[in-house]
Write a protein that binds this DNA or RNA. Structure first.
Lengths: 199, 199
DNA sequence: TATGATACAGAATGAACGTTCAGTATAAAA
DNA sequence: TTTTATACTGAACGTTCATTCTGTATCATA
């Protein structure tokens, strides 16, 4: 790789890192390009040279995040035996992430912005669909291995993703000790039900 | 009531109705006061005379909505016998609402905006806390009547609210026939669990 | 009828921000 | 060394909007 290419990559990373921190601190909308300029020393034009737009910059950060998540999970999942344990493991990882990952808040805001370009709307759909897919294969595996009831994996995958999306949001009003408990209670209920006798 | 007061109330209602439609159509941010002016024939000044601010106008609509929801549920809940049935009933009403109520999308956007005044932040917290309270008493009643396991009602109430909040969001990417099924699957799992043997 | 409050009008304000673009510096390629 | 592509600069542009403010009309009240 060239000296120039390396420098270019460095500045791109520098911008991305600063942007992530700022988005985390102030939210998506409230973070202006000007802010990022001030934080990096790069110019506006340069940011637009490396990233197509503010939206594009944010999507870049989201992609990075998703990649990291999957890597982490791949490493971690082998410490659990059963699918049930794995589900609790997922819950734990998500709970920690909701509390700690810098982009959760901003991502939430970003997903709910109404003035999104169609391209962005598509990208978000793809992100969700990947999550659905992840849970669907997960549930299906649990069924095949005899751990789960023969439920409709497709619908339940969406329900599960919904649960975690909702928990993510609620976790912001709760105290941080409670967050773990809430996640656990939710998964507990999802696995074993809150009703007394199962029919 | 005066003729003047009646007129005043009428215009307030006219503005509220138009605003609701516009927010539903274009979202919160994308609906400008100018839009509402154009739709009502009222002036900017008049809108600010009746409502403290754009936020205030939206909160007014949210309050109306919550009132209506509770009224509807009060009427409807008597048609169900057990708490389990009632929970399915709640899910059904929420699913229908997510599909049909004009403000669901805009409310989502509004809740996730980062540039909220502290006052608004407080109001939103109160709204959520009311929902938690609702579910907590609901679950507690189920426990007392022997229908539910002796779970931690507080945590599970938050989990339930989370589930419905998440479902609400997911329901937008799904086809409208699926939405009902997804809600049902979710409640089914929450009540009876997806795991095969309960411990 | 005179007075005061309420309801309404709409121009003016003022700030915020994403994006573009014409131009410059740097380093790789020829 | 000359040429060319890449990396970078920052001023200027254009647009959007919520809110305020001064003034006026309308109706209730005294």
């Amino acid at each position: 790789m060239n000296k120039k290419q390396m420098q270019s990559e460095q500045t791109k990373k520098r911008v991305a890192d600063a942007a992530r921190s700022l988005f985390a601190l102030k939210g998506y909308k409230a973070t202006s390009i000007e802010d990022i300029v001030a934080a990096t020393g790069s110019s506006k034009g340069n940011i637009y040279y490396h990233f197509k737009s503010k939206e594009g910059l944010f999507l870049y950060l989201l992609d990075e995040w998703d990649r990291e998540w999957e890597e982490n999970w791949e490493k971690k999942q082998w410490q659990y035996q059963t699918m049930k344990e794995k589900l609790f493991g997922i819950a734990e990882q998500l709970a920690l992430e909701d509390l700690n990952h810098p982009l959760t808040r901003a991502a939430d805001e970003f997903f709910h912005l109404e003035e999104k370009s169609n391209e962005v709307e598509e990208r978000i759909k793809v992100i969700y669909q990947n999550h659905f897919q992840f849970f669907e294969t997960f549930i299906q595996r649990g069924i095949d291995q005899g751990e789960f009831k023969p439920v409709n994996a497709k619908y339940l995958a969406i329900a599960l993703e919904s649960l975690f999306v909702g928990l993510n949001q609620m976790s912001r009003t709760a105290s941080s000790e409670d967050v773990g408990k809430i996640y656990q209670s939710a998964v507990q209920a999802f696995l074993y039900g809150m009703a007394k006798e199962s029919d």
